[in-house]
Design a protein around this nucleic acid. Structure first.
Lengths: 353, 353
DNA sequence: ATGAAAGCGCTAACAC
DNA sequence: GTGTTAGCGCTTTCAT
């Protein structure tokens, strides 16, 4: 007695909604068994070269393509990686920072090159652990998370649960998960050091140090100040978030309250842009009154007003690096965190000395 | 005799690589059959409320999650949509235009809201038809393609083959596939008309009219000129591609060769930015000597130099619209092309009159 | 209300 | 070299 799953309406012969071709069809038409078709299509040496040819030909001419769901189920294999971009639930912010989007593009390339598919999704930045769902449900073999946000702890838990995971971000003390990122300390240092070389002495820092990457950049910034014999002034630190909406307000307030600075290290190019706007709004010029550095070197950084001096992140290499780290883990390699070099791109917002 | 698929190394008990929990495990622990677990987890009324509770509890506490591959295979269902971004194979350009990336973000949101997963990939812009692979292989129930590029014909073929497909782009004559896009003719008109209102009379058009969207925008541009009693001057048309690299060169050449224009309608914000750069390189000011309009109103358009007057595209709504169109098709509705309104955002590159 | 068993489309171990 | 068959993890009909 035939059991019918979800009885497909059999009366739609008119609709042209033809049932998807499967191996059994090819087999029938080729006059061989399904196994032979399977073997032929997989290029098995076991099947007669002539038969193999014929079956392959037939399959191609009929535009057959395999049902991956079934194949994966049988093979217990999967070539899909989940890429997860955290978002701020409160502001319901889009995936929008150009930098994150560039990274996603870079990962897409790297995965494609290696024959993997990419499942893209977003997750509440407060519940990064939900990203493990993709693995747990078998939809993906691992997860690439774009950014650590403030939940270092959740990431550690995920790693402890043996979730194949790679995170774009900075390397923190006692970190259990595998991170890949630019050298944030170096980035912070390069930016601050450059402003110091320009003769600036009161250098502000814009970025939310609750985020590991920002925290590291601040280390670098502080170190550069120390090298120059200067102290960090907490009054010149502004914990601006990456979301443009909130950041705009916070920055305007900061710029009207605080006037005693002549340089700013910003933790993203968008923040740099907003900072410049806020400065102008209170009648201060860039780079004349205040020199500003951005972070990321997004594609448009060269076309802003003024073009941004910014820390260049290795976006193009990032995708490959993240993917390799993940695949390495899956091969059982104990992949440690990886930090990639960054450099300063000099433009007008903080010009060459 | 037990058949072993791809003999999993049985000796890795030490590695902590614990086998994924499945229904049979829950069933055993709950002392019921697999069917009952299945029913319980699907909230079937058939199973005793108390049992259902108990099973659900157990599953949750064990962190069980279902194997979607198997479920889909059995149910012949799939909740994955492929989103495909064409790229230029010759230049091996990244997915990089901020506008495309914003659209992708918008689609991600729309799909998530409706409980669908998103498979993101790129495809050679010359072989858009390869995008059908996702459907053919059963990995996705349909395809959303970002942009028509120059292969209108391939898209029509795909639609003719009954591929569930929605394309972000303009509506062309005799189009068989479903497109969703901004009103390109209107956009072109709004931009040109605004420049005319500014008193500009020699208005250039920058964009490759081989692309349907650009072609439509040029219609609108031409129409606005005609309204004003002006003729279109082919010498003022520049078929600049969207790829920044190539466009930069072409634009520099154009701007040094052609000096007889005082306004430019550009077909993307990035092109507008590049145009402004090229103009400045030959000593012409914006908007003083030449007023420039962009297209898309990308998030950063307000922060460029100068801030861009640009045609705003309905990115936020685009995702929902595209997804609805696709799901509509799958429900058997005959979804026609859909054109969404656009408007001009006035900023400094072509200021208010 | 629950269980047994078939089968979704595919692969591979085992026969021949 | 090819066919037969079991079974990947799940849902559902049918039987109880």
């Amino acid at each position: 007695m035939p059991l019918m799953p979800k009885s497909k309406d059999p009366s739609d012969s008119s609709a042209g909604e033809q049932r998807r071709l499967q191996m059994v069809d090819i087999a029938r038409l080729a006059g061989v068994s399904v196994s032979t078709v399977s073997r032929a299509l997989n290029g098995s040496e076991l099947v007669n070269a002539e038969t193999r040819q014929r079956v392959a030909e037939l399959a191609r001419s009929l535009n057959y393509s395999i049902n991956f769901g079934a194949r994966n189920l049988r093979l217990q294999e999967n070539k899909t990686v989940a890429v997860v971009v955290p978002y701020d639930a409160k502001s319901r912010q889009h995936i929008s920072d150009p930098f994150f989007l560039s990274i996603v593009g870079s990962i897409a390339d790297a995965l494609t090159d290696r024959g993997y598919d990419m499942l893209l999704s977003r997750v509440d930045a407060e519940r990064l652990d939900l990203a493990s769902h993709w693995f747990d449900s078998g939809k993906a073999i691992g997860v690439v998370l774009i950014g650590q946000w403030r939940h270092h702890d959740q990431l550690n838990d995920m790693a402890a649960r043996k979730l194949p995971l790679v995170v774009w971000g900075g390397e923190m003390p006692q970190q259990l998960y595998c991170s890949v990122g630019g050298d944030n300390v170096l980035g912070g240092t390069l930016a601050a050091r450059h402003l110091l070389q320009l003769g600036r002495r009161r250098i502000a820092f814009v970025g939310d140090a609750n985020l590991p990457e920002v925290w590291l950049r601040r280390q670098g910034y502080a170190q550069a100040l120390r090298e120059a014999g200067l102290d960090v002034d907490p009054a010149l630190e502004l914990a601006a978030p990456f979301e443009p909406g909130v950041a705009t307000e916070v920055l305007r307030e900061f710029c009207s309250a605080q006037r005693g600075f002549d340089g700013v290290v910003c933790c993203s190019d968008v923040l740099a842009l907003l900072t410049i706007q806020a400065l102008r709004a209170v009648g201060r010029s860039v780079p004349g009154d205040v020199a500003v550095t951005g972070y990321d070197d997004m594609p448009l950084a060269a076309y802003c007003d003024p073009p941004l001096t910014t820390v260049h992140q290795p976006v193009a290499e990032a995708g490959a690096e993240l993917v390799e780290a993940l695949l390495g883990q899956l091969r059982g390699e104990r992949a440690g965190p990886r930090t990639m070099p960054v450099y300063l791109t000099l433009r007008e917002s903080a010009p060459k000395a």
